[in-house]
Lab assay of single mutants.
Amino acid sequence: TKIIYHMDEEETPYLVKLPVAPERVTLADFKNVLSNRPVHAYKFFFKSMDQDFGVVKEEIFDDNAKLPCFNGRVVSWL
């Protein structure tokens, strides 16, 4: 699974690849690859589809939650 993530106000996003199927990747999986960053200091928002509003940034805080996936990749903002 490819996860593209944006940090603070930085213009260029980062990319990490996880050896987990897109439909199975969790917030804990993502946090594990960010071990060099203080993950407890961040809120995690993900590109998600809402039936009422369309594409939104959804906050996910449960480490066991599966991450929303679009075209085989996850897009996140920290």
Rank of each mutant, 00 (worst) to 15 (best):
N71A: 10
E58R: 15
F70L: 09
L34W: 03
P68L: 03
S76F: 01
M7E: 05
F44G: 00
K66A: 10
V74G: 02
V75E: 14
H6A: 02
A41P: 07
F45Q: 04
G72D: 08
D62N: 06
F45G: 02
E23K: 00
A41Q: 12
E23V: 02
S76K: 02
R24N: 10
K66R: 11
E9D: 11
V74L: 01
K66W: 03
L15S: 14
I60G: 03
M7W: 08
G72N: 04
K66S: 07
T12Q: 14
W77L: 01
F46I: 04
D62V: 05
R37T: 14
L18I: 12
E58F: 12
D8M: 06
F53G: 15
H6G: 01
V75W: 07
S76G: 14
H40G: 10
A28Y: 11
P38W: 08
P38D: 12
N71L: 04
E10Y: 05
W77P: 00
Q51I: 09
N64S: 09
P38Y: 12
E11H: 08
K66T: 07
E10D: 11
E9Q: 07
E58G: 04
H6S: 05
G72F: 03
P68A: 01
V75I: 09
T1V: 08
S48F: 11
L78H: 03
I60P: 01
A65C: 08
S76H: 05
V55E: 14
V75L: 12
V55P: 09
L27Y: 02
F53T: 15
E23R: 06
L15W: 14
F45A: 03
L18Y: 01
H6I: 04
K17A: 12
E58M: 09
P68T: 00
K57W: 15
K47V: 09
F46Q: 04
V39N: 05
V55S: 12
L27S: 03
K17G: 07
V74K: 01
D29M: 07
A28K: 11
Y14V: 12
E59K: 00
H40C: 10
D29C: 07
D62E: 09
V56P: 08
V55C: 11
V39D: 07
E59S: 03
G54A: 15
M49F: 12
